[in-house]
Amino acid sequence: MHIAFFDSGVGGLTVLHEAIQRMPGERFIYFGDSHHAPYGTKTREEITELVFRACAFLAEKKLKALVVACNTATSVAVKALRDTYDFPIIGMEPAIKPAVESSDDKRVLVCATDLTLKEEKLDRLVQDLNAGDKVDYLSLQGLVLLAERFQLDAPETEAYLRHQLSGIPWSRYHAIVLGCTHFIYFREQIRRLIAPHVRILDGNRGTVNNLMTRVHPESSPEKKEIQYFISGQQADAGHFDKYLDYLTAMQAL
């Protein structure tokens, strides 16, 4: 049986990369809905339809578990998915809790897509932590298409980030939370543009921790096995492997 990872495009590869390292004996499926990316600018109804279409396809693969490796899809559809399927479904949650718990008297900046920032799920998470008075929000929606185009180190990327992050009084902030899996490709670029004392947090490790509590680990195979799909069609592994290679190189910095 396989563990499937679903995302609107290539963002969920950052979660898969974490899982490959920590669960080397597993067989994985990756479904990137790149033909319909980005999700963050779509309506809730459009996203729900796309997510259920993808999950119906994946459910035929006899899954051990499904990771909805997309913050926007999680906020819109994960509850309905859990009501529909009986295999474990793990969603994404921005790392706001660890950011807030270690922030002392400084603020936390949560970066996400347009729709995630509008969703009740995010507001509820912040309110449950009694953190409404210390959390600010910033859309970095433009990073999604830059990631989809593999413009990870392009001049356009730096220009966009400089524009979005300029003028922020970093002395007031303790942490920045990357609330979209696409954003993690740009961690090093963001690091260069913010104050050194500001921590950069994401929810990937916590998501894989959750996954590991829900499945029984397999013994290590001779080589990793990953099946790739783009919007329901078999995909060339090279398209996705270049992102995994980039993440490995970034990790070595």
Rank of each mutant, 00 (worst) to 15 (best):
E120F: 13
E120V: 14
K121M: 13
K121S: 09
K121I: 07
K121N: 06
K121D: 03
K121H: 09
L122K: 04
L122W: 06
L122M: 12
L122Y: 07
D123V: 07
D123I: 08
D123E: 11
D123R: 15
R124G: 02
R124E: 09
R124S: 06
L125P: 06
L125H: 07
L125M: 11
L125R: 06
V126H: 11
Q127R: 15
D128H: 13
D128T: 12
L129S: 08
L129C: 09
L129E: 11
L129F: 13
N130T: 10
N130S: 09
N130A: 07
A131D: 07
A131N: 05
A131S: 10
G132F: 15
G132N: 13
G132P: 10
D133Y: 12
K134S: 11
K134H: 09
K134A: 09
V135S: 03
V135A: 05
D136M: 14
D136S: 13
D136A: 15
D136L: 15
Y137V: 05
Y137W: 06
L138R: 10
S139M: 06
S139V: 06
L140Q: 08
L140I: 14
Q141W: 12
G142V: 08
G142F: 14
G142A: 07
G142Q: 08
G142C: 10
L143M: 15
L143R: 04
V144L: 11
L145T: 13
L145G: 04
L146D: 00
L146H: 02
A147H: 01
A147N: 08
A147C: 13
A147V: 14
E148C: 00
E148W: 00
R149P: 01
R149K: 13
F150D: 05
F150Y: 15
F150S: 03
Q151K: 14
Q151H: 14
L152Q: 06
L152A: 03
L152P: 07
L152N: 04
L152D: 05
D153F: 00
D153A: 03
D153P: 00
D153G: 02
D153Y: 00
A154T: 01
A154I: 01
A154Q: 02
P155Q: 05
P155H: 05
P155F: 02
P155K: 03
E156G: 02
E156Y: 01
E156C: 03
T157L: 02
T157Q: 01
T157H: 01
T157Y: 01
E158V: 10
E158A: 09
E158I: 09
E158L: 11
